[in-house]
Design a protein around this nucleic acid. Structure first.
Lengths: 89, 89, 89, 89
DNA sequence: GCGCATTGATGGCTGC
DNA sequence: GCAGCCATCAATGCGC
């Protein structure tokens, strides 16, 4: 077989383009990501012109993110307990 | 004035919510970004199940990105040279 | 044990000073680094007084560095491909 | 004149090599810098094998650096005051 | 004082 | 499953 990628199935159309397709999907997504990142930067820029201290603002956002994660963490543990209890029931 | 942020203009409604508004816009964008990042991971995962070597695939993507950047870079340098020359004119 | 750091061996003299020793070695190296960085800045300064456009000069240096890295990169990718092929053998 | 760089003086030997010379001096210094950076990394690695928490260690070093800078800062201000006083003397 | 370039830190991925 | 590595992202410092 001339393709890289094991291709365990049989009889596939356009199979040779799979790699290119994957690459292009990734590149498309990376492009979107880049856009978002720029948008975020712009919001920080706007905050700055509003007189906010960007560095502190970043810390606030990071803190809230961390707090949110901790909440999820707690819930995950809580769920684990629940499951454990259910197993014993 | 009781607000952080200099607020050089006058008579703004809901002005105290500006900070919160900024934070929430950022958080919204970060959420979108997280989604994209997950999508990218999924595509790599799909590539893997197709039998592609993810590590190499990443290198390929990185390489193409670098090539594209290089083109831009070249143009930037070219422009710089032009500017330098104009200064001497 | 009263020390931070596990210290799995036995019978060490001055063992409590290990942390300080590490910190000081790092600081010494950082000092050296700072010197080098200043030297580099000075060379750019000299270039500037010679009439060279520092911004462009930096680009040139960066470019040469990148080219060198690219060679290494190519070799790395080449090796990766080899590995992938060996796995299929 | 065929050189970039104004070269305001006169009659210089090897003048065309000035650019290359500058670039090479910079590259030499960057190489040294890279070595130092590696050395620093190694010390952190050693600290790690000694059981120290690298992240915290970095914070300690950063803190001490900051403190040292602040001392210098103070001294600089102090010197400024001195100068000011001398001017009035 | 701002923007840019470098440098340091964090988090995810890979290989043992 | 965890440690080491790499890539990304924030932060500091410099030059204009």
């Amino acid at each position: 077989m001339s393709e890289i990628g094991h291709n365990s199935g049989m009889a596939e159309p356009v199979q040779g383009d799979k790699l290119l397709s994957l690459v292009e999907r990734i590149e498309r997504l990376e492009e979107e990501k880049r856009t978002i990142v720029e948008d975020i930067r712009e919001v920080y820029g706007e905050a700055k012109s509003d007189g906010y201290d960007v560095k502190i603002l970043r810390k606030i956002v990071a803190r809230r993110r961390r707090d949110a994660n901790e909440v999820k963490e707690e819930e995950a543990i809580f769920d684990l307990y629940l499951q454990s209890l259910e197993m014993l029931a």
